[in-house]
Design a protein around this nucleic acid. Structure first.
Length: 580
RNA sequence: UCCUCCAUAGCUCAAUGGUAGAGCGAUCGGCUGUUAACCGAUAGGUUCCAGGUUCGAGCCCUGGUGGAGGAGCCA
């Protein structure tokens, strides 16, 4: 795995309030106990110079307001569309770093952000180059501070990674061409307590390590870029559907049915775990001491629970969104989803965001076309809206990312029946390609098979269609016998396979015929009673409809080239992992 | 849940069962319109936890805990 050591570097001002969140609360007790906690206002760890004690408790201690004074005389109109009416402590226009990098020369500006790096020179009576970032773009802006600043020795030369600063100055051209700010004032808003122990250093950190300091990692260039792409893709998702007349439906996060059928669920309950109510239906008397453990003879009485029945966190909004589909035509969900699977991989989370469009009067072919358009739309959005971030991912995270994505956009995705895919894999095997698992018609394809198809054999995204019914969900539409020359019954299911990820989308045309649906529910021994409202959709004005599901974080992996799903969501939840 | 590997300085990692090391980062100094800066010096350790073997354990054994990679489940 290319865990391209990242890039890190960021800045942080630590507040004095509240308990220290601690970088690695559960690890290294020696470290955490020996470390000075929080930012104690008083004795600073660093030796003091020059008598001034810039403590975190007095953020602006010793900072100068001179810049403000001079700015007052040359009050400059605000610059850029997003410049707000607020100004810095001075009267210069506070603009974002992204705007400062494009602002015209001689503009008087203020930027606010965190120090990424600082380099000093003794030339010209003291010269410091401070890279400041505020999250608005990949590149920081370089602020040039000179010894003429009154707080130069006392503060500027002590800035360390992730100190928070406000800088006033003039936009000038860097000798190498880019914009930089010739500072007239540098105000320190928040110091970094004990830079030697500050968890993020101006050096590469492993992603594993940064997960332990998830509260500080967004200040690094990698996680800043991830956050921007995540936002960009989220907006693209909504834009894609909105532009096509889809309605966003907020399906419930708490579900009262255990019939969504997509894996282990988290229970939602307000019952007292120390005193769980038992039903006495079995006629057995309750036995003291046995009441808090379920037995065959005493079942938990969920009528006493909050919802009067068992409740769980949703594992899919699909069944619910189908109801709106059969009324609004084109709808989608985009929200959090929860799976209590004990799965520990770079592609799974216990809490993730899922996108599930559902289209009425739609068959599998159109479904797959929308899936393809959707993927391409999202890829294009990232490439055009965040070229700097994407270039970074290409250079430092996955070499060749941009070429891979360009290739994805290039031509139509390939469509292939499952039955054909099995033949291709079997032929490859006959020619000596080794697989850990055998493939035969009727068995589900393993990750290795899917990746073989999309990465080796076709070298492009592939949509597999019409899977054997026994490996797919009950709600998928039964195909006519003999579809694709399959030796058994198939359903109108599709999986979109892409290089690097494997399956990124799973979808299907839904079974709209009540008798066929009932037959499947019965075959799979599902509790028919639980599906009463789902069955109603087939009783009252049923229509062919189709949809698909896509894990948003997997789309993130696909677009950014990041290797681990825990690094593309701000605070990953996984088995044994709910810190922050 | 299964298989494999790992846990030593702020970070990344060394160290035949025999004095705890390097690089980066931090601090201080030198040089420099610097930008992965460079040069020198200094500080920094209960070697994840609990037991055990041994004259002696970072190293060997047992049991925990945590992490990583792969698999399964899936999105």
């Amino acid at each position: 795995m290319t865990r391209a050591a990242t890039s890190a570097i960021t800045t942080a001002a630590r507040n004095c309030s509240g308990p220290r969140a601690g970088p690695t609360p559960r690890s290294a007790s020696p470290t955490s106990t020996s470390r000075p906690t929080t930012c104690m206002p008083a004795p600073r760890v660093r030796p003091e110079r020059g008598g001034r004690s810039p403590t975190a408790a007095s953020p602006t201690a010793g900072s100068t307001r001179r810049g403000s004074d001079s700015a007052a005389q040359t009050a400059t109109p605000t610059i850029g569309p997003s410049a707000r009416s607020e100004t810095g402590s001075g009267r210069m226009a506070w603009i974002r770093v992204v705007e400062a990098l494009k602002a015209p020369v001689d503009s008087e500006v203020t930027v606010k952000g965190w120090v990424r790096t600082r380099r000093d020179s003794k030339a010209e009576g003291g010269l410091s180059f401070i890279n400041v970032h505020d999250g608005t773009c990949f590149d920081p802006i370089q602020v040039v501070a000179t010894g003429a600043l009154p707080n130069y020795q006392s503060e500027v030369t002590r800035l360390s990674t992730h100190c928070a600063v406000e800088c006033d100055g003039t936009i000038v051209k860097n000798p190498k061409g880019g914009n930089e700010i010739k500072a007239t004032a540098v105000r320190v808003i928040g110091w970094v307590d004990d830079p030697d122990h500050y968890p993020i250093q101006p050096k590469p950190h492993s992603f594993e390590y940064l997960r332990e300091v998830a509260h500080l990692r967004p200040r690094t260039n990698t996680f800043g870029a991830v956050a921007r792409v995540r936002h960009c893709l989220s907006m693209a998702v909504h834009r894609f559907f909105h532009e096509r007349g889809f309605y966003w439906v907020h399906t419930p996060i708490i579900t009262g049915s255990d019939c969504e059928g997509a894996g282990q669920m988290f229970r939602v309950s307000t019952l007292d775990l120390c005193n769980i109510p038992r039903s006495v239906e079995s006629g057995q008397p309750r036995i003291a001491g046995s009441e808090s453990r379920p037995t065959k003879d005493s079942e938990i009485d969920f009528t006493k629970d909050f919802f009067g029945k068992e409740a769980h966190l949703t594992v899919s909004g699909q069944l619910n969104v189908e109801t709106y589909c059969c009324a609004m035509s084109n709808v989608y969900t985009f929200g959090p989803t929860f799976r209590a699977e004990n799965s520990n991989t770079a592609r799974h989370l216990a809490e993730f965001w899922m996108i599930e469009p559902e289209m009425a009067f739609c068959d599998l072919m159109r479904d797959s076309q929308i899936a393809e358009d959707f993927i391409k739309y999202c890829v294009r959005a990232a490439l055009t809206e965040l070229p700097d971030d994407m270039r970074f991912f290409d250079e430092r995270i996955e070499k060749g990312l941009l070429a891979r994505l360009a290739h994805v956009l290039e031509k139509p995705f390939l469509r292939l029946p499952y039955t054909e895919a099995v033949k291709i894999i079997q032929e490859a095997q006959a020619k000596g390609r080794k697989f850990e698992f055998q493939v035969k018609w009727g068995s589900d394809l393993q990750t290795e098979h899917e990746r073989f198809l999309t990465e080796e054999h076709f070298k492009q995204p592939v949509i597999l269609m019409n899977y054997p019914k026994q490996i797919k969900a009950f709600y998928m539409r039964l195909n006519d016998p003999g579809t694709d020359g399959a030796p058994g019954d198939t359903v109108a299911a599709m999986d979109v396979l892409v290089p690097k990820i494997g399956e990124i989308i799973g979808g299907s045309q839904r079974e709209e015929r009540l008798d066929k649906l009932d037959q499947r529910i019965e075959e799979m021994k599902l509790p028919a009673r639980e599906y009463w409202w789902y069955r109603d959709l087939r009783r009252y004005g049923t229509v062919p409809h189709a949809g698909f599901g896509l894990g948003f974080e997997r789309l993130m992996l696909f677009v950014t080239g990041m290797a681990n799903i825990r690094d593309v969501i701000p605070f990953p939840r996984a088995p044994g992992q709910a810190e922050f």
